[in-house]
Simulated assay, not measured.
Amino acid sequence: MHLPFWHLVWGCDVRALAVILFALITFCGFARDGFAAEVPATADQYRRELTRVVQQEWGLDGSVAVHAAQIHQESGWRAHVDSPVGAQGLAQFMPTTADWIAEIYPDLGAAAPYSPVWAIRAMVRYDRHILDRLTPWRSPVLAACDAWAFTLSGYNGGPGWVSRDRRLAQNAGADADVWWGNVEHFSNRASWAMRENRHYPRRILLELVPIYIDAGWPGGDPCSE
């Protein structure tokens, strides 16, 4: 049987390789733009809605800048983007997580991760859901910067992992109420998951939030107080 030429290179279809290469280039371009250390122009169209939702959920002193930085890290403010693992939309919810949030918070309506309005409301609500369930184990209160780091770690990898990581830190003699320099160093996650999860709050809180504050987005910086 005679095979076309493109089937003879490395025993595979060159056209398929071209499609894969194009997808990788496209995704790398998204990652570069989405992670750029400046406020994308596309963020402006969502600023008013995000401000309204954050202040409704957290009060007038809620940090719009923190949530804006989180969207920046998640999707680069691209409402219809998919990640290679299947996360969807502005807030990069996995479909099962989006369905779960819609189930426990029916006032949000049916899961619609590609809808910017739904994604913003669900992300802000889920952040609040995680943070409200954090409790200090020894200190009277959690410092704001640590509380937000725990919250973002939970958003990225699941709140259950945060509790397990805190327990590991406590058992090792570290302070389970302090993320930075303490809990952040303890986990039984896979090494790749550990790297991604620890990068997530550090990137958002220490690198991106100051950029949004400087650009005039409302709300305080929890790690500068």
Rank of each mutant, 00 (worst) to 15 (best):
A147G: 14
S153N: 09
C12L: 10
S75Y: 04
A176K: 05
S75N: 02
H185V: 06
L8M: 08
S83K: 02
C145Y: 09
A111L: 00
R52E: 14
A174I: 08
L208K: 05
G219L: 05
D99V: 06
A102S: 06
T42P: 01
W217P: 01
E225K: 11
Y114E: 02
A190Q: 13
L208V: 02
A149S: 08
A65L: 06
R138L: 12
D146L: 03
R198S: 10
Y126W: 15
A169N: 07
E225M: 08
G89P: 01
E225P: 05
S163C: 02
V141M: 13
H129I: 11
Q70C: 00
Q45K: 14
I101E: 08
H7C: 15
R164K: 12
R48T: 14
P106E: 04
A69W: 01
A169M: 13
R164S: 08
V54W: 10
H72F: 05
S139F: 04
W100Q: 01
A65S: 10
W10G: 13
R128N: 13
I211Q: 07
R166M: 08
E38L: 08
T96A: 11
M1W: 12
E196Y: 03
F30K: 07
A193P: 09
A23Y: 08
A122D: 03
D221W: 04
W6L: 14
R167Q: 14
D221Y: 01
E103K: 15
D82S: 10
G219F: 04
D61S: 15
N171F: 09
I104Y: 14
L206E: 15
G86E: 07
F22T: 13
V39F: 00
A98H: 01
T151G: 10
P40L: 03
G216K: 01
T42F: 00
R15D: 12
H67W: 06
A65Q: 05
L208N: 01
Q70L: 09
F186D: 00
D33Y: 12
Y200K: 02
L17Q: 12
I20R: 15
G29P: 01
V54Y: 03
Y46L: 01
L131P: 04
G76M: 08
P140R: 03
T96I: 09
V19R: 12
W77T: 03
E196N: 11
P201W: 10
A65V: 05
L17E: 10
